[in-house]
Design a protein around this nucleic acid. Structure first.
Length: 481
DNA sequence: ATGTCC
């Protein structure tokens, strides 16, 4: 195994030869401390494994929140070139296809919560179905599931869950192109029909947060964020339909066998050439599940607005509850990037990594021309979350990508052994954070000590030039699965 | 992450 090399304060190289068969180097954006963590849980080895994929270009990248995942590390970015037999790999997207984050602003300040925080957390808990299984707020009948999978946010709005302008504040305007509902299995659709507008479990959450530090005033102003303001962050994904779709396609790829002369160093790196019809099918299904995830967060936000309306006896419009932005951090996208100086379409896998277009990116909507694309980074339970913006430098450094969150630092099993759910609840409440009723058994798996510090992660991304920190948000109320 | 095994 070759030695790692420090390239810069926040940039590390895993040279070709770190593992056998690498076509490009691995490159990890991290402080020394975070890079050491990546090496310790063998996630760095996964970065090197990804570098063996056919058609991979540039390098196999990892963000500072990298940790061990299925095949690809979570926090990994890999671009493959269809013109050089590049592949598409479900493991490079993850089981929770389209998982992402949404931030809603309000005109309320922390003082408005003094008498009503507990009531609000309770109301949110009632409006937002959660937990494993979980029935959604908006049941879907028959073939309407195909419309969810094709239209995303637009479908939810048509069903009355939201405002007509909400799509404008979502990545891809709330509807991923190239979605093909006919490539999603009936079994996956059946799981999806009952789950639109449900939070899920694990690290998925909904939080009432206070903007407690502004670092980039003009960008914050553009996004409608001011210090002391109440916001709501939603972290959720495509639930059962995405999980089933990932499972379905891993099985289909497995059935093809080793037909393309690529022997992956890890069976979980199963992949198929982009120009093979199975890749086209998976891509259509993946985008469809991404649309489900977008629609899911839209319906969840509708529940948030309803909860605020009931508690504050005022309309969501009058409360200023505009959508700030919505990002997905588990998708593979066809994008144009400069490869050896020539612009070429490549397939950028982002698994636990967020697209972060800079101010001069041609595909950036006009309204973000002065700031770059907004990026939402959820912290672990009870710790701060962040709003970032993309940089032009990221286009050449990381295929326009940045981090996605705190990143796990301890296994679920180990985290559970440190503290009981009830103990953790007491700790959060003594820190002034209200917690909606939940299943205490699973709570301690999500304890802050089980995660890296999101503050360190976003600082490393800023240090590496991949994004800029706009605002920090502090949680005061938590709704968990 | 996930009807934590069809």
């Amino acid at each position: 195994m070759s030695k790692t090399r420090r390239i810069d304060e926040y940039e590390w190289e895993l040279p070709i030869g770190f593992v056998d068969g690498m076509r490009v180097p691995g490159r990890v954006f991290a402080s020394r401390e975070l890079f050491d963590k990546a090496l310790a849980d063998r996630a760095a080895e996964q970065v090197a494994n990804v570098a063996t994929l056919p058609g991979i270009v540039g390098a196999s990248f990892a963000m500072p929140d990298i940790h061990w995942g299925y095949g690809f590390p979570i926090g990994g970015v890999a671009a493959t070139d269809p013109a050089s037999d590049g592949v598409l790999s479900p493991g490079g997207v993850g089981f929770d296809i389209g998982c992402g984050v949404r931030l809603v602003r309000t005109d309320l300040t922390q003082a408005d919560l003094d008498d009503s925080l507990r009531e609000l957390v309770h109301a949110l808990g009632n409006q937002v179905p959660r937990g494993v299984g979980g029935r959604g707020r908006l049941p879907i009948q028959g073939s309407d599931i195909d419309r969810v999978l094709t239209e995303g946010v637009a479908y939810a709005i048509e069903r009355g869950a939201g405002w007509s302008e909400d799509g404008q504040s979502c990545e891809d305007l709330g509807t991923l192109p190239d979605a093909d509902a006919s490539q999603v299995s009936e079994r996956a659709k059946e799981r999806g029909r009952g789950q639109l507008g449900s939070l899920g479990a694990g690290n998925h959450f909904l939080e009432i947060q206070i903007v407690d530090a502004i670092r980039e005033r003009s960008a914050a102003e553009l996004l409608g964020l001011v210090e002391g303001q109440v916001c709501v962050m939603i972290h959720s994904g495509s639930r059962g339909v995405g999980h089933q779709t990932c499972t379905d396609y891993l099985r289909s790829i497995d059935r093809l066998g080793n037909a393309f002369g690529y022997a992956p160093p890890d069976r979980q790196l199963a992949c198929v050439p982009l120009n093979h019809e199975l890749a086209e099918s998976y891509r259509g299904a993946m985008n469809a599940c991404g649309n489900f995830a977008l629609a899911n967060r839209q319906v969840l936000m509708d529940g948030v607005r309803a909860a605020f309306e009931s508690v504050f006896q005022s309309s969501a419009r009058d409360l200023g509850m505009q959508l700030v932005y919505d990002v997905s951090h588990n998708l593979a996208k066809l994008e144009e990037h400069s490869i050896d100086g020539t612009p070429r379409p490549v397939c950028v896998h982002r698994k636990g990594a967020t697209r972060a277009f800079g101010p001069s990116h041609p595909d950036l909507p006009e309204r973000f021309r002065s700031t770059g694309q907004p990026v939402l980074i959820p912290g672990s339970m009870g710790t701060s979350s962040f709003v970032l913006t993309g940089t032009d430098a990221a286009a050449t450094k990381s295929f326009s990508s940045t981090c996605h969150g705190a990143g796990r630092a301890m296994s679920r099993t180990k985290a559970k052994k440190q503290m009981s759910g009830q103990e953790l609840r007491k700790q959060l409440e003594s820190a002034g954070i209200a917690l909606a009723r939940t299943r205490w058994k699973l709570l301690s798996e999500e304890a802050p000590y089980a995660y890296k510090d999101a503050e360190d992660v976003v600082a490393a991304c800023e240090g590496a030039g991949l994004s800029r920190v706009v605002a920090r948000l502090r949680p005061v109320g938590v709704v968990k699965g």
